[in-house]
Structure formats: C-alpha cells, structure tokens
Simulated assay, not measured.
Amino acid sequence: MSRKVCAQIHLDAVVHNYRLARAQAPGAHAVAIVKADAYGHGAVPVAQALAAEADAFGVACIEEAMALRAAGLGAPIVLLEGFFDADELPIIAREGFWPAVHSLHQLEALEQAQLATPVPVWLKIDTGMHRLGVQPQEVATSVARLQACNAVADVVLMTHFACSDEPDKTMTLDQLACFDQAAGTLGLAASLSNSAAVMAWPRAHRQWLRPGIMLYGATPFEQPNPIADQLQAAMTLSSEVIAVREVPACETVGYGATFRCDRPRRIGTVAMGYADGYPRHARNGTPVVVAGQRAQLAGRVSMDMITVDLTDLPHAGVGSSVELWGRQLPVAEVARWSDTIPYTLLSGLTPRVPRRYD
C-alpha cells in the first residue's frame, strides 16, 4: 500500500478567493501572486485555473515567469524582484514581462538597453520596509528618467507594507502618507495592496491589487477579519493513521520524551513529518482532524511521522483519515501552534507530497 500522504488542491477555492479580492475594489485590476510555486499549490495549475480571471500574474523571478509561459499562459507577468542582470532584458521584452525597478543599477541598465519592444516597469518606492525600492525623494527624478527611456513603455508606482496584517498599528498610515507625498502629482497608476491591505486597508487599493496569501484561503491576520472569514481553503493536507499503541500512564511518546501520558492513552502514528513540510516545532496539543473529529499531537514531530492522541476517539484506528490542515482545520491555526505563519507552512511543503487537483 502506498503512503497516503496528499495535498489536495481546490482550484475552485482559488478562483473564489481571487474574485473576493477583486470585489473589495471593483474598479481595480488584480495581480494574482503565484510566486514560490503558488505558495506550494503549483504555479502552473493555479495560473491555468485563473487564466480567464486574472489581469496579470506576479512572480519573484524570471525563472518562475518562464515556467508560466512554457505552460501557455499569455497574461502579463510582473517580476516582483525585477531583473538581476541586464542580459535578462531582451527576454523580458520578448515575453511581455513587467519588471519591478527598485535600484539605480536597474534604471541604468534600462537606459543602456536596446530592446525590440519597450517594457512596462513598476517603480518600487521604499516607504519604510527598507528592503527594496528607491528613496521617496528620488521618485520624481527616477520617473522622469524612465519616461525618457526608449526601453520603457509605461511606469506604475508600487510599494510594500510592513505591518498591514496588524490593523491596529499606525505604520501603514505612515507608509501611505509617504507614498502619496512621493507620488505627488505624477498621475501614475499605483500598486500598494498585498492581501492584508486588500482586506483591511481600502485607502491603499489604488489601480492594482496584489493578492497573494488570500488566494490560497489563509488569513494573514491574528484576529478575525470579516473579509478573511469568507476565504476558502485551497489546500487540504491529509494522511492516514498507520499504527495504534496503548501507552500506559507515566510513559512518554516520541523523541525527547516531551509528551508524558497522565493516564493510559491510545496513541496513533500518522504518516506525516517534517520531511513532508509539516512543522517540526508544532507543539504538543497542535490540532489535527482524525476521521472527522479533532485530536491533538502527542509527542515531537519526526522526519516521517507524527503521533496523535486517539484516547477519546475510540472509532479511530489504522486507516483512519487525518487532515493536517485544510477545510476542517485552518492552516493559520496550525501555524499559531507552531510559532510560525501560514506562508511558511504552505510554501514549505516538500516535493515528497503529491499534489492532486480538483
């Protein structure tokens, strides 16, 4: 019998979530972010499911963009980290990619380039994230240089928020003010909103949204959000119970003996471990769903297996289905128990886990 580990990808949920993002700003366009293999969901199948819906796709680098083109996706593709070397520019022009420009060396490369077709660029402004982007006081000059450049067809302004997933923090307002001052009266289209800003910061919507994690049905927020509550999980990660042990009181389970039985307990072993992408730091008590009912991790996650407490689930046994996250158990809940975020869990799923699509 083959190992019953599977990530079922619900493409109808991805489409629903994209439409939900668009509905927050009906007059705006939306870039479907499919970088990092669509956060572990499979960039090509996800993009194909959105082909009739998405205004553009967003990836980190040209390799990810070329994989979409090879699969026949013809929509515009935004290169969120831009280009790394000038020799990428002819490919970008040929394939119709839209590169971000965040540094002086990129601007200079465009000025020196001789391209058969000019390319639209997205000029990134550093409004406080301090990773990438031109300084606010450099925006007007940078736009003028880009608009004077034969290799450039159009300019969109963009920035990225540091704390938009924390609606109570004022930093997003500070970044918005910084962006608006830098953009001034340039009259250019803009893209500011990641998933959190799509759902919680309508002032940031502008002409182009950039929904990412919300496409996959995971909330970026720690607290409830009325829009995030409408998301549908796009991945169900599942396995089966492969063994059951009756463990006496005071005995321990798993590496490090981190779980001690306070009474006789029935422990199930599940084919799923950190080599599959399940978080090693998931604590005792992390929820799972066994045969439709909630159970808890009992013992440290190992490379290929986890152990769960089946004491109160007498109907569960070898062959019982186990949902690690998905439609019955939000991935964000598992992430909280693991001291991490849903992005890490979804994008960290390893190739050992087969993806199946419905």
Score class of each variant (00 low, 15 high):
5 V>Y: 01
21 A>D: 03
24 Q>F: 01
33 I>W: 01
40 G>Q: 13
59 V>M: 10
60 A>P: 06
70 A>K: 14
72 G>M: 11
80 L>F: 13
81 E>F: 11
88 E>V: 02
93 A>H: 02
93 A>T: 04
99 P>K: 07
99 P>R: 03
103 S>Y: 01
105 H>F: 10
105 H>W: 14
111 E>I: 01
123 L>T: 08
127 T>Q: 00
130 H>M: 00
135 Q>F: 04
139 V>D: 04
143 V>K: 11
147 Q>C: 08
153 A>L: 15
154 D>Q: 14
155 V>S: 02
158 M>E: 11
163 C>P: 00
169 K>E: 13
177 A>Y: 01
178 C>Q: 13
180 D>E: 15
182 A>V: 04
199 M>C: 08
207 Q>D: 14
225 N>R: 01
227 I>F: 03
235 M>L: 14
236 T>L: 03
238 S>R: 13
250 C>M: 13
250 C>F: 07
265 R>N: 08
273 G>V: 06
277 G>Q: 12
283 R>D: 14
285 G>D: 06
290 V>T: 05
291 A>T: 03
296 Q>P: 00
306 I>F: 03
308 V>H: 01
310 L>K: 04
312 D>F: 04
314 P>E: 11
317 G>P: 03
319 G>K: 06
321 S>E: 14
323 E>R: 06
323 E>S: 07
336 R>N: 08
340 T>A: 09
354 P>Y: 10
356 R>T: 15
